[in-house]
Lab assay of single mutants.
Amino acid sequence: SKTSNTIRVFLPNKQRTVVNVRNGMSLHDCLMKALKVRG
């Protein structure tokens, strides 16, 4: 089974995003990807 960790990230202006960290990806990469999608 694939394991994925879901991390809630609290952003300024009362924004919130959820990042799924996959195996083999660093938290930083996942964060940058999530913020790019939002931006």
Rank of each mutant, 00 (worst) to 15 (best):
R16C: 06
T3A: 15
G39C: 12
K36T: 06
N13T: 15
N20I: 11
L35V: 09
N5Y: 08
V19G: 01
V21G: 14
H28L: 12
H28R: 12
S1L: 08
F10T: 05
G39R: 10
R8P: 03
S1Q: 14
V9L: 02
M25V: 12
R22F: 02
P12T: 03
R22D: 03
N23S: 10
T3N: 09
T6S: 11
T17S: 09
R22S: 08
G24S: 13
L11Q: 00
R38Q: 04
F10P: 04
M25I: 08
M32A: 03
N13K: 07
K33N: 03
N13G: 07
R38Y: 04
L35P: 00
V9E: 00
K36S: 12
N5T: 13
S1A: 04
K33D: 02
S1N: 14
L31M: 10
K36N: 15
K33E: 01
G24D: 07
V9M: 02
S1I: 08
K33R: 10
V9G: 01
N20E: 04
T17R: 04
A34G: 10
G24A: 10
R22H: 12
L35M: 08
N13D: 11
D29E: 04
I7N: 00
V18E: 02
G39V: 06
I7P: 02
V19A: 10
A34P: 08
R38H: 00
C30R: 03
V18G: 03
R38P: 01
T6P: 06
N13Y: 08
M32S: 04
T6R: 14
H28Q: 15
M32T: 11
S26H: 04
T17I: 01
F10L: 06
S26D: 02
T3I: 09
R38S: 01
R38L: 02
R22N: 15
R22P: 13
L31T: 04
G24R: 07
N23T: 09
H28P: 02
K14E: 07
P12M: 04
M25L: 07
V19D: 00
L31V: 07
K36D: 12
T17N: 02
D29A: 13
N20H: 13
N20K: 14
H28S: 07
F10H: 05
S26T: 15
N5D: 10
G39A: 06
L11V: 03
V37W: 04
M25K: 12
Q15P: 01
K33M: 04
S4C: 09
K2R: 10
G24C: 14
V18A: 09
K14W: 04
C30Y: 03
H28N: 06
K2N: 13
L35R: 00
N5G: 04
D29R: 05
I7V: 11
Q15H: 01
V9A: 12
G39S: 12
L31A: 04
L27K: 02
V9T: 05
G24Y: 04
L31Q: 00
K33I: 02
R22C: 13
S26I: 15
T17F: 04
K36M: 14
S1R: 13
R8G: 02
G39E: 06
A34T: 03
V18L: 05
N5H: 07
C30W: 01
V19T: 14
C30I: 05
L31P: 00
I7D: 04
V21F: 05
T6L: 07
V18F: 03
V21I: 04
M32I: 08
L35Q: 01
N5K: 09
L11P: 00
M25R: 09
P12L: 01
M32R: 05
N13H: 05
I7M: 07
V19E: 04
K33G: 02
N23K: 08
N13S: 10
R16S: 05
D29H: 05
D29V: 09
V21M: 05
K2V: 12
P12Q: 02
T6V: 15
A34V: 03
R38C: 00
R16G: 07
R22G: 08
N23H: 10
R16P: 00
N20D: 07
R38G: 00
N20T: 12
N20Y: 14
T17A: 06
F10I: 03
K36I: 12
S4G: 10
R8H: 06
K2M: 11
V19F: 13
V21S: 05
K14I: 03
S1C: 10
L27V: 15
K2G: 15
V21A: 11
S1P: 11
Q15L: 03
I7F: 11
P12A: 02
S4N: 13
G39D: 15
L11R: 01
K2Q: 15
K36Q: 08
V18D: 01
R16L: 06
C30S: 09
F10V: 03
R8S: 05
S26G: 08
L27Q: 00
T3P: 14
N13C: 12
S26R: 08
V21L: 07
V19L: 10
I7S: 00
P12R: 01
T17P: 00
H28D: 14
L27P: 00
H28C: 14
N23C: 15
V18T: 14
K14Q: 05
M32L: 13
S26N: 11
S4D: 15
K36R: 10
K33L: 04
V37M: 12
V9K: 04
L27R: 00
N23Y: 11
S4V: 05
V37A: 09
L35A: 14
S1H: 13
S4I: 10
K14S: 05
S1T: 13
I7T: 03
N23D: 11
F10Y: 07
S4T: 15
K14M: 09
P12S: 01
Q15R: 01
R8L: 13
T6A: 09
C30F: 03
D29Y: 13
K2T: 10
N5S: 15
T6M: 09
D29N: 11
A34E: 02
N5I: 08
K14N: 14
R16H: 12
V19I: 09
I7L: 11
V37G: 04
K33Q: 06
S26C: 14
S4R: 12
N13I: 06
M32K: 08
Q15E: 15
H28Y: 13
M25E: 05
K36E: 06
F10S: 13
C30G: 08
N5V: 15
K33T: 02
K2E: 11
R22L: 14
V21E: 01
L11M: 11
L27M: 14
D29G: 12
F10C: 07
K14T: 08
T3S: 09
V18I: 12
G24V: 15
Q15K: 02
T6K: 07
N23I: 10
L31R: 00
A34S: 08
K14R: 09
S1G: 13
V37L: 07
M32V: 12
R8C: 11
N20S: 09
V37E: 01
M25T: 13
